[in-house]
Design a protein around this nucleic acid. Structure first.
Lengths: 148, 148
DNA sequence: ACACCATTCGCAACATCGTTGCAAATAATT
DNA sequence: AATTATTTGCAACGATGTTGCGAATGGTGT
């Protein structure tokens, strides 16, 4: 019973998030958003394709990620290996306005990418003539779990 | 006459760089290294393919970049648009040992990527349990030239 | 200058990744 | 429940990156 309630809560949370972003609620979007909520690291397109099972077309995943990006549900993280990863945004992100002011970390041991919300971005002082719009910090190393 | 001497100097510089890295001197490698020396921003595979003319096979460019990377002649810069760019390393880089301790800048107006050698990387303090191996800082904004 | 060996190049074929158009299926609206 | 708008899956395509292999080229010793 209790479990059923929990599941129901998660589901309503997903549906609410989608509706809040003006996205119609469909199976694919529910499933992908669910993956992001369960897995607290960042996911690449390929990760999602594998974890979601065979049920969804590649194209649907591309378009869903695109929609989530545009609506501010997720943000993208560039990586050195030419594979973009995506992670959930915090609540205060909305249409095109991301508050993505944290450091991203990639573990060289297990390969997972996480957002370190507690580490704020450093101030970067550029040479005269340059204007800053966005700062992205990508730290690679060994994560908490892999450091046993 | 003087111009001929200059050209000769550049050519010998290229050849020296290649030999110093234990790479045999070939037309393709000369041309690609020349592009990096002339153009002081970072270049993607595609940029090189265009700038080098029709003369070189795509595969040759891939393999050349791979060789340059391994020998420490160039380093790669991850970008948000899923296209890796490459830039010359400073002199003190060698086989696998890069001293790539500077900030990278991408201009949102002209699209060029440059290494800001004069801006050193900030110290990032990670949460307990994390180990830092490498820090990559990617700043996007408007560059000196585009700010007129 | 020549011949020999190792390396590199170009071609072809292939794998992966991402995009677009369109008809069928599904969600939102009345 | 019917209508409309949106989303999905399929197919086809383009771009990007990889691999194997014979031909061409660079490096080396004589």
């Amino acid at each position: 019973m209790e479990k059923k309630t929990d599941t129901a809560n998660i589901e309503t949370k997903i549906d609410l998030l989608l509706k809040k972003s003006n996205l119609s609620v469909t199976g694919g979007r529910r499933r992908i958003l669910e993956l992001f909520l369960q897995h607290d690291g960042a996911l690449s397109h390929g990760d999602i394709e594998k974890k979601a099972g065979e049920k969804f077309d590649r194209v649907t995943i591309y378009r869903t990620l695109q929609a989530f990006l545009e609506k501010g549900l997720i943000h993208s993280i560039p990586t050195s290996d030419n594979s973009i990863r995506y992670a959930l945004c915090k609540d205060d992100c909305s249409d095109g306005h991301h508050h993505d002011d944290h450091v991203h970390f990639i573990c060289t041991a297990c390969g997972t990418t996480v957002c370190l919300e507690e580490v704020t971005l450093p101030a970067i002082k550029l040479p005269r003539g340059y204007t800053t719009e966005q700062v992205e910090v990508l730290v690679s190393g060994v994560c908490k779990s892999c450091n046993h």
